[in-house]
């Protein structure tokens, strides 16, 4: 690992200014479960590391009937997954969070880190996409909200400007979420998704999100509009799964072939839809 300068500011302002001052080779450090590995392997070699864990407000997790759930950028996955409100009202998010890495990883890693890393297979991405989450961003020109589907630009690329810091993720309040998360992987625990998917049903609206099937996690909008207004019969589910698969553009890699991934999108979406149907 190359030498680097380390800063641990206590305010967002300070952190953002540091990032701007130190330039493009300054990197935010949150849980570190991606960054440190990349640094050890020499893939990322920042000159400056800005640790945001000293910023108190980023550790909040709160729920409000109107605003919904806010999960601060530095809330670790295990704290979120086992939070009582999250378990009751956003079960699907809790389940997805519990599937990230190992227990040890989840004690360090955060959801904000998971999505900002912008891996196509980020496990928390599909529930966030399906629930239309908003990413709250602090920047030199003030604060802004980015809809989650606009955050992901490409493999490992997000729509954040240098100097911008994600404060956390807001998930709208919904009357009643019926949701299901599916992760198909080689090994059940401590593995990356070969394919992951989330389906939520909110007031009869069905939303489908997929990961590890395209350069970014995606919503399967065609499949969603196909389902719209239809009763979830076996035939509808079968067809919707096929349509969802047609919206994906998976690759072949060391984990699976393209064909297997397409097959698994169908299976995962079918399982999702069957789960929300009953």
């Amino acid at each position: 690992m190359k030498n680097f300068e380390y800063f641990k500011p206590s305010t967002l302002k300070e952190a953002s200014e540091l990032l701007i001052k130190k330039g493009a080779n300054a990197h935010i450090l949150n849980g570190g479960t991606d960054l440190i590995i990349r640094m050890k392997e020499g893939i990322t070699s920042p000159d400056v590391v800005v640790d945001i864990k000293g910023i108190k407000e980023l550790h909040n997790i709160k729920f409000d009937e109107k605003e919904g759930l806010f999960v601060g950028a530095c809330v670790v996955l295990n704290d979120m997954a086992h939070n009582q409100i999250v378990k009751e009202k956003y079960k699907v998010l809790s389940n997805a969070a519990k599937s990230v890495g190992s227990g040890q990883i989840r004690n360090k890693a955060t959801m904000t880190g998971n999505i900002c890393n912008a891996s196509p297979l980020a496990d928390t991405s599909t529930p966030l996409l399906a629930l239309d989450a908003k990413v709250l961003v602090y920047g030199p020109n003030g604060e802004r909200e980015i809809p989650i589907n606009e955050l992901f630009v490409w493999v490992r690329k997000v729509s954040l400007e240098h100097g911008e810091i994600v404060k956390g993720v807001r998930i709208p309040a919904y009357e009643n979420i019926i949701g299901d998360f599916q992760k198909i992987s080689r090994r059940k625990e401590v593995d990356l998704s070969t394919v992951a998917s989330t389906v939520v049903k909110i007031n009869d609206e069905i939303r489908i999100a997929l990961a590890s099937v395209a350069p970014t996690p995606i919503r399967a909008r065609k499949a969603e509009s196909f389902i719209k207004g239809k009763k979830l019969t076996d035939e509808v589910i079968e067809e919707a799964a096929k349509i969802a698969a047609s919206e994906a553009s998976p690759i072949e890699d060391v984990r699976a072939s393209k064909e297997y991934r397409i097959e698994m999108i169908k299976i995962a979406v079918k399982r999702n839809l069957n789960a929300v149907r009953s």
Binding site: R186, R187, K188, E189, L192, V254, R255
Partner: peptide, 23 residues
């Protein structure tokens, strides 16, 4: 341990899986 033209493709626990306690 997978290879392509002699190059090892998965020399890490990310893509070389051994059983966990769950297995």
């Amino acid at each position: 341990l997978k290879f392509k033209d002699g190059k090892p493709l998965n020399p890490s626990f990310v893509d070389y899986k051994i059983p966990t306690a769950n297995d």
